[in-house]
């Protein structure tokens, strides 16, 4: 009898313990994360008065959003930044492959150099690059002047601003991706390389025939993560351009403004929170579409063993 009741009571106690263990994080996520998502979705259908309070306006924010040239520009800038940022992936793969060479010395030193920008505060990174990019006194233009090139005012010139930003983005993320690729490469069975070298394949051939296909699932993961990250670009642009009037004084501002920066301004500078909510819902849709698209395309280039 006691045997019959034991396990049942035991598993009930186990269940209670289970709920107790997940309660802190569960409640925290519900209050600060899950419920807010629903609220933001609701807010996107409302308009906010100057003193708080909001009224239901149906699809008004979304129709406004579709005709808003500022949104159009921000989306275009963000998409361009995201697409160009993907160039960082082959860079990371090549350096990971170089570091993965068996018996190479000094790997941890090189790895540290690449990883340093990853652990540096993005605000500091942005300030540092703003200085490097300075049109008159920046190191980059001073070096270019030595070879007789008159460099532009990189982040204040509409023709160069976005590309200058991409360079900083790649510089600060290549170390992160490199670590992930290195872990992926170290998991490739050594026998594959041994067999290939028996067959007389050189290092370059081995890279294209073995390393590249074997890390393609890792590359897929990295590309998903970096697209999602790039679409949320904020810190770099915020520090490089600032916000509000001062930012608009930068002639390249329209080439730099991103979706999240627009969200920040609408939500916390002009306090137009209903519209801001619609902007981030649009961002969510953009992220979802691009992620699904990548999953669709993966069959064409990702090799699973």
């Amino acid at each position: 009898m006691s045997d019959g009741g034991g396990p049942a009571r035991g598993s009930r106690a186990e269940a209670l313990w289970g709920y107790a263990f997940i309660a802190p994080t569960g409640l925290g996520l519900a209050i600060f994360y899950l419920w807010p998502v629903l609220q933001t979705a609701y807010f996107s259908f409302t308009e906010w008065g100057p003193f708080g309070g909001h009224t239901w306006t149906g699809l008004a924010n979304y129709t406004r959003l579709l005709g808003d040239p500022e949104v159009g520009r921000a989306v275009l800038n963000t998409l361009t930044y995201t697409a160009l940022g993907l160039l960082g992936i082959p860079v990371a793969i090549v350096f990971a492959a170089l570091l993965n060479r068996p018996g190479l010395r000094g790997v941890s030193l090189y790895r540290t150099a690449f990883f340093l920008p990853v652990v540096t505060m993005p605000v500091a990174v942005a300030m540092l690059w703003r200085w490097l990019y300075n049109g008159d006194y920046g190191l980059i233009n001073q070096v270019l002047a030595v070879v007789g090139i008159d460099g532009p005012n990189w982040i204040a010139d509409p023709a160069t601003a976005l590309y200058a930003l991409v360079v900083v983005g790649i510089w600060s993320s290549v170390g992160y991706n490199l670590i992930i690729f290195l872990a992926g490469m170290q998991a490739i069975p050594k026998e594959l390389y041994e067999a290939a070298s028996m067959d007389g394949a050189g290092r370059v051939r081995q890279f294209f025939r073995i390393t590249l296909p074997m890390v393609s699932p890792t590359a897929f993961f990295v590309s998903i993560v970096s697209v999602i990250g790039s679409l949320q670009l904020f810190d770099l642009v915020f520090v490089m351009t600032g916000s509000g009037k001062a930012a608009r004084a930068n002639p390249a501002y329209t080439r730099l403004q991103t979706v999240v920066q627009l969200f920040y301004e609408r939500a916390f500078v002009t306090n137009d929170r209903g519209y801001a909510a619609a902007v981030v819902i649009a961002l969510l849709v953009l992220i979802a579409v691009l992620t699904v698209l990548q999953f669709r395309l993966q069959r064409r280039w990702v090799h699973y063993v």
Partner: peptide, 17 residues
């Protein structure tokens, strides 16, 4: 449900928070 939080860009939490 926990994992679903990971799929949402964090800006969606900000106004209600």
């Amino acid at each position: 449900l926990f994992l679903s939080v990971l799929m949402v860009p964090p800006q969606l939490f900000v106004i209600p928070q």
